[in-house]
Nucleic acid binder design. Structure first.
Length: 763
DNA sequence: CCTTAGGGTTGG
């Protein structure tokens, strides 16, 4: 019998199978039975490279999978092909092909135990009179550069642009998808379906789709794809290495090795050929006057009027600007009341218009959304001296404007969920306690967001306070030079440490140059408790320079508290000008006193004098600031030395002066940060060592002020906006100096920023 | 009903 090797049969019905041949199920295949009038059919799931046997015969092995039970390994069988037939098959047969063979020998498989396949294998060769029919896979995928008008094709593509399904003006939902493939040809497809679930589940640019039965037409001189009857799609995450899970509404679809390979290839191609958008923006990094995509959770929704609808959403981060509140009565907002209240400082109002209203109405509270191309608009109401920003999803679908619902298993949703779960709601409530007056005040100085954006792109967000005559030096040059030197640079802040800004505050001793962490309140409390064990010594009360008051607490502990008010000119002064010393108070009591009096010094009694507490505690509290002394360098002097300041004409009670008379080496609060600066020629880490000049925020006050912390966070967000690509980061002009650091084994050069400050219109 | 949209931001 002649060899039949069919290359281009598209449908199985076209195979000219001899009528005497009957299909044999793999299950019934046995060694020794007569199979002369039987054929075996299956799909090629594996093929091995063509090899030669020792006698020079060509040999080709494939694995065939039976059709009835695609999952079972038992249902697969090894086919060994010999001679010319092996050579021919190796050229033509590919994974996924349907393969029919008749005239085979059934041999007990020696490898069945290892490979778990059928107990027999088939041997096939011209000499044995075998017939092989190979049917190319049913689906042929057309590259985008080979599309022809009027055809219905299957294709793969990487999503370059898309509009999530929206309500069209006709009867269907519509989604517009632009694909590209390695042929570098673009194809825009307009897809319709009455059920949005039947449209491709694309969540981001870079996703990969497989379309079956899409109709190609020419429109305006370009090829265009349109849904035809039977259109079906699979969508995959386009990230190299991400799990290959097709997203589809079809219950039946073929997806085998061949498709896996195809997706992986496209992923690799896309990685270097598609500009994938950076990490999605969070509310904490939104910029006014821009458009952005937001991944968020729906907390509340409300009808506003006929053409607009309100969505209240959160993503766990706080928008650094005051945001608008769409005036809607609370009772008209659908959503969980308690949650709406609890999250009120983290949710933002997004007003959606026109064609988006219908879809917005149908959204379920609690669902995860990606809202595409939200417009952050700066409110420009006249006669208002403060700005807020508004979030609009304007009507229409330009630039993919729309709303997509993300499924719970979406990786971005999983990440968001985890993040939302970790948000400390108490924190955001504290921020709310910051008065609105304070907030409004901040932003009155920051009226023109647009000019900020412009200056980010051209000018610098930092300015030099000296040395303007110097020219810029490239980072590469600096890194190749010896230290110490000083340079003017122009660079971008790629990242900085610590990211938690409160961790950047340290205490610095200018005498011994040591740095230490700021002690926390608990430690102070503990020291106060310990010192309260010693009762105030009455003999030390009411001296020539202070008046003493003493009382016993009413609680069970019956603590004795003594307060010594330092006199000036023989008189007590107004509380706000008064320095007092306290013995036996708790942390709470001490802090309360600092609110009313100018200075508070915690002390304890010894036999013959008052003395300062352990220097792990602040030796002085003034306003919100706790002043510490260096344990190493301080040599405490008698408390009585304070009387010399009290005797001044107008005691200013400056911490430095108090420290000096008490023999305390004052520790200074500093910001210590590491800036990673880049300028296209190189990157270097430079330390910022700043008391208050750079941020124009005193390091000493930031730890006790939510307001200042917010302000500093905003400043950092402007110097290094989160979620932005390097090219979009603003420029910083800085002075840096290099210096040598040597220890026993190593020598390295470090850099420090100096004489630089954040530009006035940025803070 | 056999269309709808056919990519390229902003009115509220």
């Amino acid at each position: 019998m002649p060899v039949q090797l069919l290359k281009t049969v598209k449908e199985q019905s076209e195979i000219p199978l001899p009528s005497h041949l009957q299909n044999e199920d793999l299950k019934h295949l046995q060694e020794g039975c007569d199979h002369t009038n039987k054929y075996i059919q299956g799909i090629v799931v594996l093929s091995y490279p063509l090899t030669k046997l020792r006698d020079g015969t060509d040999f080709f092995k494939i694995v065939l999978q039976g059709l009835d039970d695609l999952c079972s390994r038992m249902n697969s069988i090894n086919i060994l092909i010999y001679g010319k037939m092996a050579e021919d098959c190796a050229k033509i047969i590919r994974h996924g092909d349907t393969f029919i063979v008749a005239g085979f020998k059934v041999i007990k498989s020696p490898t069945a135990r290892e490979d778990g396949r059928h107990g027999c294998h088939l041997e096939v060769s011209e000499e044995a009179g075998s017939d092989i029919y190979s049917i190319a896979p049913k689906y042929v995928y057309t590259p985008l550069n080979q599309l022809k008008d009027g055809t219905i094709v299957n294709l793969y593509g990487v999503v370059k642009f898309f509009k999530p399904p929206y309500v069209s003006k006709g009867t269907d939902y519509c989604s517009v998808v632009t694909l590209v493939d390695p042929s570098n040809v673009k194809l825009t497809c307009t897809l319709f379906n009455g059920n949005p679930d039947s449209l491709p589940k694309i969540y981001k640019v870079g996703d990969i789709v497989r379309f079956h039965r899409i109709k190609i037409r020419e429109f305006n001189g370009q090829m265009q794809g349109i849904t035809s009857g039977g259109f079906a799609s699979l969508t995959f995450d386009g990230t190299v290495g991400a799990p290959l899970v097709p997203r589809t509404s079809s219950k039946m679809y073929t997806f085998m090795d061949e498709e896996h390979k195809r997706i992986e290839e496209l992923r690799v191609w896309a990685a270097s050929n598609i500009s994938i958008s950076g990490p999605a923006a969070k509310l904490s990094s939104v910029q006014p006057m821009l458009f952005f995509d937001l991944t968020c959770q729906l907390v509340g929704k409300a009808q506003v009027d006929g053409s607009s609808f309100l969505l209240k959403v959160w993503d766990g981060t706080k928008c650094p600007y005051p945001t608008w509140r769409v005036p809607v009565e609370a009772k008209d907002v659908e959503g969980e009341k308690a949650l709406l209240h609890q999250l009120r400082n983290l949710t933002v109002d997004i007003l959606v218009y026109d064609n988006h209203v219908q879809l917005a109405k149908s959204l379920k509270i609690g669902s995860f959304l990606r809202i595409y191309s939200i417009h952050t608009k700066q409110a420009s109401a006249d006669n208002e001296d403060f700005s807020h920003i508004e979030f609009h999803l304007h009507g229409g679908t330009c630039y993919g404007r729309g709303i997509g619902v993300l499924p719970e298993n979406n990786p971005d949703v999983k990440e968001l969920k985890a993040f939302l779960g970790s948000v400390d709601l108490a924190d955001s409530q504290n921020m709310e306690s910051m008065s609105s007056v304070e907030l409004d005040g901040t932003f009155s100085d920051f009226t023109d967001f647009e000019s900020y954006l412009q200056r980010c792109q051209q000018l610098s967000v930092t300015v030099l306070t000296d040395h303007q005559h110097l020219n810029n030096t490239e980072l590469k040059t600096i890194m190749n030079s010896t230290a110490p030197q000083q340079y003017r640079i122009r660079a971008k802040l790629r990242t900085y440490k610590p990211q938690k800004l409160h961790q950047s505050v340290k205490l610095h001793c200018s005498k011994c140059n040591s740095l230490q962490e700021v002690p926390d309140g608990d430690e102070f409390d503990f020291i106060l408790q310990r010192s309260a064990v010693t009762a105030p010594n009455p003999e030390l009360h009411n001296t020539s320079w202070y008046d003493s008051v003493m009382w016993t607490t009413q609680d069970q502990k019956q603590r004795e508290i003594a307060i010594h008010f330092v006199r000036h000119d023989e008189l007590l002064q107004q509380p706000e000008n008064t320095l007092l010393m306290i013995e036996g108070g708790t942390l709470k009591e001490v802090l309360k006193l600092t609110k009313r009096f100018k200075c508070v010094i915690p002390v304890r009694s010894t036999e013959d004098d008052l003395e300062l507490l352990d220097l792990s505690a602040p030796f002085l509290l003034q306003g919100n600031v706790k002043y510490y002394g260096c344990k190493q360098c301080s040599a405490p002097k008698p408390i009585k030395n304070l009387s010399s300041i009290a005797a001044e004409q107008q005691p200013s009670w400056e911490p430095t002066e108090i420290a000096q008379v008490l023999g305390i080496e004052l520790l200074q609060y500093v910001f210590i940060m590491k800036f990673t600066l880049v300028d296209g020629t190189g990157a270097l880490n430079a330390y910022l060592f700043d008391y208050e000049k750079f941020f124009q925020i005193p390091a000493s006050e930031i730890l006790t002020s939510n307001f200042l912390q917010e302000k500093m966070q905003m400043t950092m967000n402007m110097l290094c906006p989160p979620g932005r690509k390097l090219g979009d980061l603003p420029w910083l002009e800085c002075f840096i100096k290099s210096y040598n650091v040597r220890d026993a084994t190593k020598h390295r050069v470090c850099y420090q920023i100096f004489d630089t400050t954040v530009a006035e219109d940025v803070v």
